[in-house]
Design a binder for these strands. Structure first.
Lengths: 123, 123
DNA sequence: AATACAATTAAACGGTTGCTTAATTATAGG
DNA sequence: CCTATAATTAAGCAACCGTTTAATTGTATT
């Protein structure tokens, strides 16, 4: 393992020695803060799903219209909507033959905006 | 395609008719706003990577320490760091035999916080 | 030089994922 | 009751992804 990054006596330094078992365990405990977080990001990791979510942030749409705008097959879109539904990111209402979807959670818009800001900084 | 969701004459309604080619094209144009965004989310979609990024938000660490804390093989960790490097999310400096990594972008912390807030709301 | 350790890279394998085609359910209209 | 349209579901397939093992590079030590 690595040696201490802090010189002996340099206790003003905020960093811990990762080679010490105590610090290692402390860091492991902190990891619980982000447990399961990647699951949400996994939903957003597909281009089609971010497009669907962004469309729904603009207006309510039925499945066939989403498919039309995205130029995709209906089953493919339905497949993604099912996943978004399972994660409580979208809600739906039936109106005759159509089923209209809309956002169920505004956090998503915030995540998308933040990601946009990331790219906006010349990356 | 779907019929208009707005009754004729109800032009106070903010929603557009998605079945009209003009609206369809307008929506398609808006999609450019989120083009490529999922790529960033894809990086965060892996649990190991979110854990690495969160660890690095706490303190600078070398590869073998990350591997130790996460209880993973060195090549596996290195593999992920390579991807994070390619996306300019982490930076590194060599110090002797070790290579120390740290966050290169604070946006990531914001994204993680926002995702945490999402789950904090009883979902 | 030679050895040891940290890190990276490459190849290969197993699991996951997203799309397609086909079949099924649901609702509206003739 | 039958047909047509919207949507969902299921099965199958190709592509992608993360890990492992093994080999290679780089740096420090003796």
């Amino acid at each position: 393992m690595a040696e201490a990054t802090v010189q002996p006596g340099a206790d003003y330094c905020a960093t811990y020695d990762p080679s010490s078992p105590a610090t290692r365990d402390a860091l492991r405990e902190r990891l619980l803060d982000v447990a399961g977080l990647s699951e949400l990001f996994k939903v957003l990791s597909d281009e089609t799903r971010t497009r669907i979510l962004y469309l729904l942030s603009l207006q309510e749409l039925c499945v066939c219209d989403i498919a039309d705008v995205l130029d995709m097959s209906l089953p493919a879109v339905s497949h993604h909507l099912r996943l978004l539904k399972a994660h409580r990111l979208v809600k739906y209402r039936r109106e005759g033959k159509q089923v209209y979807y809309s956002l169920d959670d505004d956090h998503i818009v915030g995540l998308i905006s933040l990601a946009q800001a990331h790219y906006a900084e010349g990356r």
